[in-house]
Amino acid sequence: MKAIKLLALLGLASTLMASAAGAKEWKAIRFGMDASYAPFESVDPSGKIVGFEVDYANALCERMKVTCTFQNQDWDGIIPALLAGKFDVIFSSMNITDERKKKVMFSDMYYATPIVFAGQSANKSDDVSPAALKGKTIGTQSSTIHANFLEAFYKDSNIKLYPTQDEPNLDLASGRIDYVVGDGLVEADFFEKKGNGCCRVISEIKRVPGIHGPGVGAAMRPEDTDLRDMFNKAIAEVDADGTYKKIEAKYFKQDIRGKQLTN
C-alpha cells in the first residue's frame, strides 16, 4: 500500500510540473496563439509557429527586453486558457470588442484588416445581403466576430461554425458550404495555397462598431496592467522606428496598420 501511495505522490509531483506563473517582473512572456490563421500565424512543417504576428511579437519582445515563447491553443479555449494562466498574452488576431473586454484587457490596436465574404468562383452574384443569402450555408470560425456578425444579421441563413478558420475554407473549396466570412488576407492566402482558382473574395464587410470593434489587439488578464503598459509602449516604439513597416512588407502588399481606425 505504501508503494501505491508513493507512486501516486510521484505521479502528482511529476505531472504538476510546478512552474510559477507571473514572477511579476516579466522577464519572460508566454504568447497564446491559434496557429491556424495563415499568414498571421500557422504551423510550418517543422512544427514551429510562424507568421506575421510571430515576427511582430518578437520585435515587441526585443523592445521590452523579455524572452518570448509561443504556444498553440485552440480558439474556443483561448480566453479560458489565458484566464487560467496557461499563457500571459493572446496574440492571435483577436479583435478588440466590448464583449471580450468584459473578460480580458486589450493593448492598443496593432492591425486592422478588411473582413470579407468569400464564395466559389462559379458564384457570379456579388449580392451578399441577408435577403440574397437566405437559405444559403455560410461558414466561419466559432467564437469570432464573424460568428457574432452572422448570428446578428443572417438569421435566415444556415450558419456553420468551425473550430478553426482553415476548416470552413476547406469546406468552401469542396463546395460543402456556399460562403465563408473571414479576414480578407487570410482568405486570400488560402485561395492562393489552394490554387486552381476555386474561390474568390466577393465583397468587403463594413465593420459594425458593436460587433467588430476597431481592429486587433493583444489580450491580457485584467490585472496585468503593467504588462499592458509595456506592450503599448513597445507597440509605439516598433511603429516609430520603422520595424513594423519592415515586417508588414515581408507578408503583405498592403498597409494593415490601420491607424485611422482608432477607438
Partner: peptide, 22 residues
C-alpha cells in the same frame, strides 16, 4: 461535434464558447 455537427457535445461546446462557463 468536431466536424461541426451540433449534437449534444457540439451544443455544449457552442454554449461554452459563449459563456466560458465550464
Amino acid at each position: 461535434a468536431i466536424v461541426t455537427l451540433l449534437d449534444l457535445m457540439g451544443q455544449t461546446r457552442f454554449i461554452f464558447a459563449r459563456t466560458f462557463d465550464f
